[in-house]
Design a protein around this nucleic acid. Structure first.
Lengths: 154, 154
DNA sequence: TCGTGGCTTCAGTGTCGACCGAAGTACCGG
DNA sequence: CCGGTACTTCGGTCGACACTGAAGCCACGA
């Protein structure tokens, strides 16, 4: 007997969340992202997420706030007593990756500052120079790649 | 009255360690890296690191083991009762960055798996497809950039 | 003005990992 | 063997953080 699609999807969501948990995103936040990427219909209320992901209302609230703030999730409010609907904002996923690349490139500022402190003693600076060269190369190449990205509208 | 070079260097080491602490490297491990990048002479014993960085012998031992294992620090043993010497292995810094980029690209395997689970329902897959396209693009571009790296000897 | 439902906030709990320092281990010279 | 040194391992402590659930806080409808 085969496993249903929804069962396999929730297993996938768990793997998805586990990956981002290693990058510092709370487990429940990752589950929300994975779930909102594949759920049907595409919009969910906080209460539905709480039930579906078996997480407390507080955790859902905190993580939704975090994700909305990061731009990855959009909150749509409705008039009256109706609960707000949340949906993934997949267009903003590029920002997530951009931040990652920026963090990598930003090390260059550190190595540069170190090199300045070393000025006047080139022999002592050779070790740091190797590292600095590497990040300098990254800082020149990566942004160029980013510009060539299909529909890099910014 | 101006601040001495060594004082500013230790401040720089602290910033250096703080940056990598955000990426999951223990604070003391980051301090060892920063220190070994700029110290003179270039080799230090565990005891010297312990004193210089004001860290316990246990922490130094654990972190050195981690860094040596990662290839970023080289241990040089000497005969007799002489303490081993540790030095930075700055050539291996590329591996650190490579692992970072690999981790980023590896998300593609997740999105691909998700897309397979979605086969037969293209409408439901549009959100995930946007993300998948992004990582697929990354997975084709980044390795190419890496190959163009000056002296990419591997 | 009250009641109700949706959401946020917050104190409390548990877990995890970095760190310390002491005890233990390995190694060598004598 | 013994003594001492270098290093590792390990129990214990501390702080940080994710998560929970309940209390509090709107905003709306009646």
């Amino acid at each position: 007997m085969s496993v249903g699609r929804e069962t396999r999807l929730s297993a996938w969501i768990e793997r998805f969340a586990a990956h981002f948990a290693e990058e510092g995103i709370p487990l429940i936040g990752g589950r929300i992202l994975g779930y909102l990427l594949v759920c049907q219909p595409t919009e969910r209320t906080a209460a539905e997420l709480s039930q579906e992901l078996e997480a407390s209302s507080g955790s859902i609230s905190t993580n939704l706030k975090f994700l909305v703030n990061a731009g990855l999730v959009t909150k749509r409010t409705r008039r009256g007593r109706q609960a707000a609907q949340y949906r993934i904002n997949e267009k903003r996923w590029v920002d997530l990756i951009q931040r990652k690349l920026d963090a990598l490139v930003s090390v260059r500022e550190l190595t540069e500052a170190g090199m300045r402190l070393m000025s006047g003693d080139p022999e002592r600076a050779v070790r740091l120079r190797t590292v600095d060269d590497l990040y300098t190369w990254l800082a020149t190449e990566l942004p160029a790649v980013w510009e060539r990205r299909p529909s890099s509208s910014r």
